[in-house]
């Protein structure tokens, strides 16, 4: 691990010398990207691809166009008006296929080894069968992370999402220790920024995590997509329909194939929230791992 990191660091420095712009590193992608906005089409910029090669891309490729008028018309610290986003995860259907993780990594320009979703092997007692439990950020309604943030860098939107402002975060990591679900990850070094080859879709929404060295990030419920009534990438990518996403105000959630009443689903399948007794009021519900669709196999994700 250490060696890998120092390697990527070295190549980072090398690449940084070439691009100049990126070498400003640690100061946020957007500043870099916006510098490139002025460049005409046809100019090329050298960047480091996720597999460690230096690639040349057209500068128009990294022009962060913000096409979505919906995003700019409301305050990003207030969320999408009238919405209360909610997720339901059906543990009976999860077989640790790992697609949610890889889709998440892709959506958020994370290295393959890293994603905001974790698929945890859980076993409630010795005699019970183990099961897989995917954990995104729970976007709690009584969020311990937001409570402790000293600068309001993580905040609760009216649409239920717990957002992060990576330009404000001071990197104290109090939110990480406050979160009982270990949902938060930290940009320990510059590794993650340089994996961004295409900046195009990143940070259309300020609540969207961006990879700024020395700051915290986490699952953001893909607010850019949610605002456009599109399901988050993990929901769409899951081959087994484990994830349901929707709007609590509408009382409807969908996993892409099937659209159901939220209240009915939770009633019929005894939906629950993880560690309910902590009182954090998560916006992510679980359906218990009963009547499993797959036998439990302890395998690496992606091999099934």
């Amino acid at each position: 691990m250490d060696e890998e990191q120092s390697n990527s660091r070295r190549s980072f420095i090398k690449t940084g010398l070439i691009t100049g712009a990126i070498a400003a590193g640690g100061l946020g992608i957007m500043e870099v990207a916006s510098q490139d906005t002025s460049k005409k089409k046809g100019d090329t910029v050298k960047l480091l691809s996720p597999d460690g090669k230096i690639v040349e891309v057209d500068s128009s490729e990294i022009n962060p166009q913000i096409p979505d008028s919906l995003i700019s018309t409301h305050n990003v610290r207030e969320g999408v008006p009238g919405k209360k986003f909610v997720m339901v995860i059906d543990l009976a259907k999860c077989k640790n296929a790992g697609r949610c993780k890889s889709a998440c990594s892709k959506m958020h320009y994370l290295p393959e080894t890293r994603s905001y979703i974790k698929i945890n092997k859980m076993q409630d007692s010795d005699k019970a069968s183990p099961y897989w439990m995917p954990t995104p950020c729970f976007h709690c309604d009584n969020p311990p992370c937001v409570k402790v943030c000293p600068v309001g860098a993580t905040f609760k939107l009216t649409d239920g999402i717990v957002g992060i402002d990576n330009d404000r975060c001071i990197g104290c990591r109090f939110c990480m220790v406050a979160c009982p679900y270990s949902a938060r990850v930290f940009n320990w070094d510059t590794e993650y920024q340089i994996n961004v080859v295409r900046f195009k879709e990143i940070k259309e929404h300020a609540a969207c995590s961006t990879h700024v060295t020395g700051t915290v990030e986490k699952c953001d419920f893909c607010p850019t997509k949610a605002a456009k009534n599109e399901l988050p990438d993990c929901v769409q990518a899951c081959p087994n329909g484990v994830f349901y996403f929707g709007d609590e105000n509408e009382d409807v959630v969908s996993n892409g194939d099937e659209t159901v009443r939220l209240s009915q689903l939770l009633k019929d399948k005894s939906g629950y929230r993880f560690l309910e007794d902590l009182g954090t009021k998560p916006r992510v519900y679980y359906l218990p791992p009963v009547d499993r669709q797959f036998p439990f196999k302890d395998v690496e994700p992606g091999t099934t």
Partner: peptide
């Protein structure tokens, strides 16, 4: 169906 944000509710 009833049209909802993220799908059609039967």
């Amino acid at each position: 169906f009833i049209k909802k944000s993220f799908g059609l509710l039967p």
